[in-house]
Design a binder for these strands. Structure first.
Lengths: 331, 331
DNA sequence: CTGTTAGCGCTTTCAT
DNA sequence: ATGAAAGCGCTAACAG
């Protein structure tokens, strides 16, 4: 493996000083067209490229990089979030390095990124202790989660308010018996079963009923479809369904069509996430939209605030974003 | 904006040498537990975090970063590609910095990334000249495209072979009259109309017919649906359809169901891309799969080869990956 | 165990 | 228009 070409090699080869090489490469003026062209030519011949670390080390204008941890690239919610984040970050002058929790060890990914970013943002599956260890002192902005340790900041989504509003609106639309399709994930995730927050809020705000009409399914379109069939079979009187997320809700709507159940005529179906995809299907899927624009904007507000103090800020910063009800066709 | 805390500040405050501070922070041994703890404490108090550029400048173990340019985060093909790339890159020890063409100026994004990566990979919409300018000498691996300039490498997908095979297979399955739904994008993209490669290959291999049964639509589920209706109205004898991509194919399948057209009984529908989403719908969508695993693996093979020569390699490297026919239910 | 000495590769002064 | 000097902040190598 050939040793890397440095500015000195170019300077020597071109018979000029290092500074002249710098001038040529950075359009700095104070250099004749002739020498500039000659230096650039020699550079190209030698295959010289400035070392990015040396360059940034000495440059006064420190740039800021954020490590974005994306939950999963196979869930549109996360990819839409990532896309929104990338766009907003670029506008604010942040570099983004991404990693995904699903690609191997999250710990390894975070530890590696820790050497190259000023800040972490994202959805982490590590425990607070593991995460604290892995980030090596670099501040973290948790998305849709909360941790009060020093160095941890967060943007939360007030899903409780969203579900409360949704339940009230559905009631006003004439729904008499609410059902819910929950994710089966929380069952697998922890040894001791703990209901998802969505389920807790549903139970808190659903109309009074003899027994809660809840079934669980996998977090996919197919899972949503199966769950909808199960729900209809077990609780035929249900005329409104809150679904864990939009992918499952799309599956439920499809299953309803196959079953000959009219949507929203006989049953109103409401998802959670606000996926663009929900607009592409017929009928379009109504949803409690977790506003990704607002989410990433809040995260970057925190990022800017931290950067302003050179990341020496000690107090935890928190934001809350409100979900928006997106009434499309299915509810 | 407070000046950033450096290793010297910590050393002074803790009453030790810089080297001892380094030892404490990097678990290097040769340091007593007591001093280590004390140094770490002082560091935390001062809010010290090692400068990542200085660290990487001096570290012998140069790490490699690749800039991934993702076409669009609203197209599952690209996000699945990005996910696969992230996973593969992590395994091979590459850092990934991402940008998206849709987020503002592609030129600006590339120029900014150029200061921080050793290599570019991705789908670019810039012209060869603009791109050459923007990357500032950093090598580029083009995905699904080709450019023979020095410093440009590529991974191509042999779509022609894929479409040839698909046409033959469809014929063997009894299809008599092939139709195609093309993207309307190429019409908008260039002032002078040029058919998409998919269309050219379709026309090359479709069964002999009096006139080509081709309609165009937007690159979305809805666009695919509309196009399918138009196709059926104009060419009622068509019993096999090649669709520009899977999102459109899914829309076409849905439209067929609404129309009461049996899939694949009356009409066989075949998409392009190999989206996972095509497996989640009913009927599942058959497709010419553009193998993302193979695509990113080839790109990273090239990346490794370039890295091995410290990116001084001059000859253009090229790979070709073959599409795979994924027979699911719709064809 | 701890400190000293070099030097990574580049850009910024400031001379000439 | 060009060159010389002086560091950026950190870690490797060697002292003690």
């Amino acid at each position: 493996m050939a040793k890397r070409v440095t500015i000195n090699d170019v300077a020597t080869a071109a018979g000029v000083s290092r500074q002249t090489v710098t001038r040529a490469h950075n359009d700095m003026g104070d250099i004749s067209e002739a020498t500039k062209r000659r230096v650039l030519e020699v550079s190209a011949q030698l295959g010289y490229r400035p070392n990015r670390f040396a360059r940034n080390l000495v440059g006064r204008q420190r740039l800021r990089a954020v490590g974005l941890l994306v939950g999963s690239f196979s869930n549109p919610y996360f990819t839409e979030m990532a896309g929104a984040f990338l766009a907003a970050a670029a506008k604010r002058g942040w570099q983004v390095m991404m990693a995904s929790g699903e690609s191997g060890s999250e710990t390894a990914a975070v530890e590696m990124l820790a050497r190259h970013v000023d800040l972490f943002v994202g959805h982490f599956s590590l425990s607070a202790e593991e995460l604290t260890e892995a980030v090596q002192g670099i501040p973290v902005v948790l998305l849709d989660d909360r941790c009060s340790r020093p160095g941890f900041h967060s943007v939360e989504i007030d899903l409780r308010a969203g579900i409360r509003q949704a339940m009230a609106a559905l009631e006003a639309k004439g729904v008499r018996r609410m059902g819910m399709i929950d994710s089966s994930y929380s069952l697998r995730a922890s040894p001791t079963y703990s209901p998802s927050p969505r389920r807790r809020f549903f139970e808190e705000f659903a109309l009074e009923v003899p027994e809660p009409a809840i079934v669980v399914g996998e977090e996919s379109m197919a899972g949503g479809g199966h769950a909808f069939r199960a729900l209809m079979a077990e609780y035929p009187d249900v005329d409104g369904v809150l679904v864990f997320n939009d992918m499952m809700a799309i599956g439920a709507v499809q299953a309803a069509q196959a079953l000959g159940v009219e949507i929203p005529g006989q049953v109103r179906i409401l998802g959670v996430d606000g996926l663009t995809l929900g607009e592409a299907v017929r009928p379009t899927v109504s949803t409690i939209s977790l506003d990704r624009e607002a989410l990433v904007a809040s995260a970057l507000d925190i990022a800017d605030a931290l950067a302003a103090s050179n990341f020496t800020n000690t107090e935890s910063l928190h934001r809350t974003v409100m979900p928006r009800l997106l009434w499309r066709e299915s509810a």
